[in-house]
Design a protein around this nucleic acid. Structure first.
Lengths: 221, 221
DNA sequence: GTATGTGAAACCATTCACAGCA
DNA sequence: TGCTGTGAATGGTTTCACATAC
């Protein structure tokens, strides 16, 4: 199989979303043009990505929607349900527990953890909140590989260490901390403030580039 | 002034965070080594970024912390406070209103908007919730340039259109919708489910690359 | 004609190698 | 020796040009 560039892999979920929408509208074929217009990407890039993903289309028609969906789902490993745990049931943590979007990619939050006696035992958005002392036991028992970290900054590193020691391979970190983790663990940092300031910086450069930045091809928005 | 690569611009806020922490610890000088270890970046990359940002350091000492902070703040345009509005006071919207991290980058949410009579008039985390009908008036009056969109998918495009018509230049979109926007508006999409599935995909490729992906140098985690 | 497919070229970012300075 | 600074080389991604299929 061919080598797929990381940026391409990151765009695949976006294609998947559009393709699924097309499928639910009973469209058998989806063209590059359609995908590129929906996602604001250059048509040529979509075609190249499809080619990397070994999706094959037909001239004049486009790509077979269902087949393409299957290919992408396979590459992303979405075939079967995938559980994540969430640690830190503050306002952001609670919002994520109520969030229903994860199922779009066949993922779900199976359990939440906190140390507050007021929260332990409660259920938020169908997810039960456990005592954080139970964290290691739960992860080992269920062999969960992914964790969503919504704890205050000060506790983030400690919890991360415990997650990793218990076998977690991927951490979605919403705290502003930069976690120290071993090579084999992937951390993705989703810093809300950072998102906003990056947006601001890009707007600034876009309108009056007193500092000139390159705009090779912006990521999917 | 020199052209700064977009990836560099995106790393600047991270440097800023570390530099500020150093400053508050009264460290006059900050070295590349220190920055690179904190952020898990290669030292050479940090130096190159600093060079792009026209920060100049001294051999053996490093970079002057305060001066470097000023440079980066200037490039990112953080000099003065910057307001954003938030639309959609659901659970995620509320969490963001209570979130106190924006001030790290001298930004704040000045007003929130929703259509629910139960929310209009209330104050969440010091931010007042207004009737969404008041949106255009508020934006025009205060000349706000940034908006955080935490509305359900179905309403996202309509609100975006109204924001843009009122003069907003940057939208932080938390809905899963891909917005159609004119060239001059920057949209940054922060899809929570997408983050998790991207994390999963990267973990998958990292452990058993049946599909091989390139790993040039991952973004800051 | 219209849309896919692919090797080559262009472009951008990262890394290297080595220079300079305290 | 330890750290910054920079032009050149490398590596990866996007884009182009053109071939191909219906």
């Amino acid at each position: 199989m061919e080598k797929i560039p990381l940026p391409t892999v990151r765009r695949l979920p976006a294609y998947l979303q559009i393709l699924r929408a097309e499928q639910s509208r009973k469209k058998e074929w989806t063209s590059t043009t359609m995908l590129s217009e929906s996602l604001r990407l250059k048509a040529i890039q979509v075609r190249k990505d499809m080619s990397y993903a070994s999706c094959q289309g037909r001239p004049k028609k486009g790509f077979n929607t269902s087949e393409c969906i299957r290919r992408i789902e396979h590459i992303l490993g979405l075939a079967n349900d995938c559980e994540a745990v969430l640690i830190g049931v503050g306002s952001l943590g609670s919002a994520l527990l109520k969030y229903d979007g994860f199922s779009r990619y066949d993922m779900y939050v199976g359990a939440a953890f906190d140390s507050s006696p007021f929260l332990i035992g409660t259920t938020i958005g169908e997810v039960k909140v456990h005592d954080v002392d139970f964290l290691e036991t739960y992860i080992r028992r269920t062999a969960v590989s992914y964790a969503i970290l919504t704890v205050p900054e000060t506790g983030a590193q400690e919890i991360a260490d415990r997650l990793i020691a218990s076998g977690v391979r991927g951490i979605l970190n919403f705290s502003s901390t930069y976690l120290k983790t071993p090579e084999h663990v992937i951390v993705r940092r989703d810093d809300l403030a950072l998102s906003l300031v990056q947006l601001k910086a890009e707007v600034k450069f876009h309108q009056k580039p007193e500092v000139i930045i390159s705009r090779p091809s912006h990521p999917i928005t």
